[in-house]
């Protein structure tokens, strides 16, 4: 995890496309908020591996949103239950999906899964946009200030940082 945080800091300080970092962060949010062992998360993993999204950002995002999910699960349950049972016009859709091949394996009929998946899909674009804006803003305004901080200088001069840099070079990072 420390490695991922350091990677993210390095990434923020690199010239890499902010969209990749934001996309990784937004994609990581989905397995973070929804139950991890769900079929749709394989799809998220596929997307993460196939397109150029930042994996470090995705892992950090997954960790942060997993913690958040503990607090939000009761809300997801009520939201999911409302979607599954409260909207009569959707009953036909759910019934068809319930009787369709493969779809029952997604456990879409579980209240928490439905609530959290719909919530994370709705939040995907705002999170992506917000992430991209934050990375850009950070690079424009805070990066210089951050580099000037004494603690950063002390850290960069430390054995730990030197050791980590050497390790990263060996790994080809």
């Amino acid at each position: 995890m420390i490695q991922q945080v350091i990677s993210l800091i390095r990434l923020m300080h690199s010239d890499k496309d902010p969209r990749q970092i934001a996309l990784g962060f937004a994609l990581g949010m989905i397995p973070g908020l929804t139950p991890f062992t769900s079929l749709h998360n394989i799809l998220v993993l596929l997307v993460l591996l196939f397109i150029r999204a930042n994996i470090s950002a995705a892992i950090l995002s997954w960790a942060v949103f997993s913690l958040l999910a503990f607090a939000l699960d009761p809300l997801f349950h009520h939201f999911g239950l409302f979607l599954l049972m409260g909207i009569s016009s959707l009953q036909g859709v759910w019934t068809s999906l319930y009787n369709a091949p493969l779809i029952p394996y997604t456990k879409f009929n579980n209240s928490i899964l439905m609530g959290s998946l719909i919530f994370s899909l709705l939040a995907f674009y705002p999170v992506y946009r917000g992430g991209k804006m934050m990375v850009t803003k950070y690079r424009e305004t805070f990066m210089e200030r951050f580099n000037r901080l004494k603690i950063v200088h002390v850290f960069r001069a430390s054995h730990l940082y030197k050791w980590y840099s050497r390790y990263s070079q060996l790994r080809g990072g």
Partner: peptide
């Protein structure tokens, strides 16, 4: 719906049409 323990939600059973 089949009740599950806390943080696991409930499974809503839809009619099996065919």
């Amino acid at each position: 719906p089949t009740a599950k323990p806390r943080l696991k939600g409930v499974d809503v059973q839809f009619p099996i049409t065919h």
